[in-house]
Amino acid sequence: MTTVTKQTHTFRLGQHEINRLGYGAMQLTGPGVFGDAPDRGKAKKVLQEAVAAGVNFIDTADAYGPHTNESLIAEALHPYKKGLIIATKGGFNRPGPGQWIPNGTPAFIRENIDGSLKRLKVDTIDLWQLHRFDPNVPVEETLGPVVDAIKAGKIRHVGLSEVDVPQIERAEKVVPIVSVQNLYNLGNRKWEKVVDYTTRQGLAFIPWYPLASGPESMAGKISSIAKHHRATTAQVALAWLLKRSPNILLIPGTSSVEHLHENMQAANITLTDEEFDELSK
C-alpha cells in the first residue's frame, strides 16, 4: 500500500479536471436499484444540490432502474453545467430487483450505448464503463461496439468495473482505459493491487460502496479520529480514501440533501500520516 502526504482535491481525467469528491446516483432508484426514485422531486433536488456544492462528476448506469436513473439526471440537470461529467455504464441485464446478469454481447452493448446517449440527452458520453466482463463473451467482442462508438464520437473515454490487473491489460489491447471502478473501502481492501496499479498507470480509481468503515473492531479508533476532526465516521472513511491515493475519485451516494452535504465536507478533512496508518492496520 502506498500513501500520499500531500492531498490534492482534483484529478485529471483526459482533458477534464475532476473534483475528487463526486456523486454516485444509484440510490436515486427504487428498492433493489429497480424502478424509479420513490420521490422524484426530492431526487432531482439532491442532484441539483450536488452540482451546486461543487460536484462535477456524477456516476450512473444504464442498469440503474434500469434506465430511470439516466433519465432522472437529464431531467434534473440538462442542459448540463459546463465542466460537468456524467459517467455511465453498460453490460448488465436487469430482470428484477437486486438481479444483475452480465451481458457482454455486442448487440446489447451497442443498445446500451445508444440508449444512454438518448436518455442523458448528450451527443457524446464523457466516460462509458463496462459493468463486468461477461464470462460467456470474449471481452474483445464486447468492446467492439465501444471502439465503433469512439470512432463515431459517441464515447470520449472508457473505463472498467470489478476487474483485476490482467483484465485491465487485456482490455487495453482493444481500447485505451482511463478508469477502474471496483468495490473498495476502509473495511474491504481486496483490490489493493489494482489501486496501486492504477496509481502507477495514471488511471482513475473509483471505489464503489466507499462509505463502509470496516468491522466493529475498528469502531474505537475510527471514533477517536472522528472526534479529533469533529467529523462523522462516514466522513473519516471518505477522508481515508482521499489520502490513500491521489487518483481516487469518490462517488458516495445518498438520497438525502443533508447527507450529501455531510459527505461533501469530507474533502475538508486531511488525516495525518499517523492517523492514516492507524486506520490502515
Score class of each variant (00 low, 15 high):
P97I: 09
R110I: 02
V146W: 02
F133W: 06
Q99G: 07
P138C: 10
I150M: 15
A74Q: 02
E70W: 00
A74L: 04
P166A: 13
Q167C: 09
V175I: 15
G104C: 10
T142W: 00
V175G: 04
A152K: 14
I125L: 15
L143N: 07
T142H: 03
S179I: 07
V180I: 15
V122Q: 10
I177M: 10
P176R: 10
H67I: 08
D148F: 06
N136S: 13
L84C: 03
K118S: 14
L160S: 08
K151Q: 15
V175M: 09
Q167F: 04
Q181G: 13
Y64N: 03
S116I: 01
V139Q: 08
Y64Q: 03
Q181F: 07
A61Q: 04
L130S: 08
V146A: 09
K82T: 09
V165H: 03
P145K: 01
K121D: 14
G144S: 14
Y184P: 02
R119C: 05
R170K: 15
A74T: 05
N103K: 02
S71R: 10
E169R: 14
P66I: 04
V180E: 09
Q129L: 11
E172W: 02
K121C: 10
A171F: 01
Y184L: 12
K121S: 12
P66F: 04
E111H: 12
A171Q: 05
T142N: 08
E111M: 10
K121W: 01
D134A: 10
N112P: 02
D123F: 03
I168L: 07
A63Q: 07
E141R: 11
G91E: 07
N93H: 13
A76F: 03
S71D: 12
P166C: 11
K81P: 00
R156M: 12
P95M: 08
H78K: 10
W128H: 11
I73G: 00
A107T: 12
W128L: 13
I86L: 08
R119W: 04
A152V: 05
I86C: 03
I168P: 02
R132Q: 14
P102A: 11
D164Y: 08
K173H: 10
L72H: 00
H67R: 13
A152D: 15
R110L: 08
E75W: 02
T124M: 13
G115C: 09
D62L: 00
K82L: 06
I150Y: 05
H131I: 06
L143E: 08
V139Y: 05
N69D: 09
R132L: 12
